[in-house]
Amino acid sequence: MVDAVRCEKLVKIYDAGGQKVVALNGIDLNIKLGELMMLVGPSGCGKTTLISVIAGILDQDSGVCELFGKNVNVMSSKDKLQFRAKNIGFVFQAFNLLPSLNAAENVSIPLIINGEKRTIAERKAIEVLKQVGLGDRWKSYPSQLSGGQQQRVAIARALVHSPRLIVCDEPTSALDHTSGHNVMNLLKEVALHQDRALVIVTHDARIFEFADRIAQMDDGHIIKVT
């Protein structure tokens, strides 16, 4: 079976005011479908850069990154957008919910981007909110929800369009221990299944137990995968 993600010799160099910062320095990494892969490593080692490239929202300078056997880099920008809209779900450290939309409307966004009608999208969104335990809060606005609840809405938003890859950057670091555990349980039990891969960037040693594999990064390299 084809891998969810296959990175080969990925290099990304930032130009920070004339100064070159090598954020990714030859990354080789494979992630299988049905797998929960964690990316760990010291601050500034390139974790966020790596999942940005994997998710297709940042272009590498060299190397190849294939998703489900497809080289996204060679696609036209329109195809790339559609591919991203269909196949990738995002979960962020800062939740990034739209404050003026209620939970159901927030969750429905990926469906609407994929061309779904609003009423149908919102009905589906409420279904997914039920799965993350917020079925009764679909009318709430982000400001009316706790951090843990907001992150659960964000997970519902990452799930609603059934993407094949979900990328999460520090999904638990803004949350207390219990909420963090709840979020990880949801990701592991609800989000993960055999046709989908999860990549989770984290600092949070308390959640390492949820990983199928852990890739350790340092200074733009992957130094160990366990």
């Binding site: 998710a55 929202i57 957008l81 809209a85 269909k86 995002f90 990034n96 981007i113």
Partner: peptide, 13 residues
């Protein structure tokens, strides 16, 4: 701008 960024990341043209 961040909200627009999120929409863009999620595939809005």
């Amino acid at each position: 701008i961040r909200q627009f960024g999120v929409l863009k990341a999620m595939g809005t043209s």
